[in-house]
Amino acid sequence: MSVIFVLLAISILIAVIFFIAFIVSVKSGQYDDSYTPSVRMLFDDELVKTKKTSAKEFEKEKIQLNKQV
């Protein structure tokens, strides 16, 4: 039974060590993404940009589309 307590204590200690290592690596910038901003301009065409329109503008666009059909 005492072996379970020893193993439990050791596993908690290892978990705490890994958690501290993770926090230190995050604070040092290990997981910062430096690649995506440099290639973001290549993929601008794929992004759908929506603009906020008021109800009046929406109705005008709807009427214009109906006239085209």
Rank of each mutant, 00 (worst) to 15 (best):
Q30K: 10
V3M: 12
K52N: 11
V3K: 15
D33G: 01
S54H: 13
F18P: 00
V69R: 10
A55V: 02
F18L: 11
E61I: 04
K49N: 06
Q68R: 13
L8K: 02
L42G: 05
M1Y: 01
I4S: 09
T53I: 13
S38E: 07
F22Q: 02
F5N: 13
S38A: 06
Y35I: 11
N66K: 10
E46H: 03
S28E: 10
Q30I: 02
K67A: 08
D45V: 01
M1P: 00
D45N: 07
A21R: 05
K67E: 08
V3C: 06
Q64P: 00
L13K: 09
D32P: 02
N66D: 05
M1I: 03
V6W: 04
I14Y: 03
L47R: 04
F5T: 11
K27G: 07
I63R: 12
I63A: 14
I12S: 11
F18Q: 08
G29H: 02
K56P: 03
S28A: 11
I23V: 15
L42T: 03
K49C: 01
F22Y: 06
D45A: 03
A9P: 00
V6L: 08
M41Q: 10
L42E: 12
I4F: 07
K49Q: 08
F19N: 09
A9S: 11
D32R: 15
F58Y: 13
D33N: 09
R40L: 09
I17S: 06
K60N: 11
M1A: 05
E61D: 15
S54E: 15
A15R: 05
S11Y: 10
L8S: 04
K56S: 12
P37W: 01
A21I: 01
V26Y: 04
I14N: 03
F5E: 13
I20M: 10
K27I: 07
N66L: 08
P37E: 00
A9R: 06
M1L: 03
S25P: 01
M41A: 08
P37S: 01
V39G: 00
Q64F: 03
A15Q: 05
M1S: 08
K49W: 07
S34F: 09
V6Y: 05
V26S: 05
K27C: 06
E46S: 07
T50V: 14
V24F: 15
Q68D: 12
L47E: 03
D32N: 14
V3Q: 12
D32Q: 14
V26W: 06
S28I: 11
I20Q: 09
V16W: 04
Y35L: 09
V24S: 15
D33Y: 01
S2I: 07
N66G: 00
G29S: 06
M41W: 10
L65E: 04
S38W: 01
I10S: 08
K60D: 12
K52V: 09
K52L: 09
Q68W: 04
Q30M: 06
K67P: 00
M41K: 10
M41F: 12
I20K: 11
T36P: 01
I4N: 10
T36M: 13
G29F: 01
Y35V: 10
N66P: 00
I17M: 06
T53C: 04
A15H: 05
Q68S: 07
L42R: 11
V16A: 15
E59A: 12
T36G: 02
V48M: 08
L13I: 15
I12Y: 12
V16M: 10
S2E: 11
F5A: 13
I12A: 13
S25D: 09
I12M: 14
F43W: 02
Q64L: 12
L65M: 05
T53L: 15
M41C: 03
F5I: 09
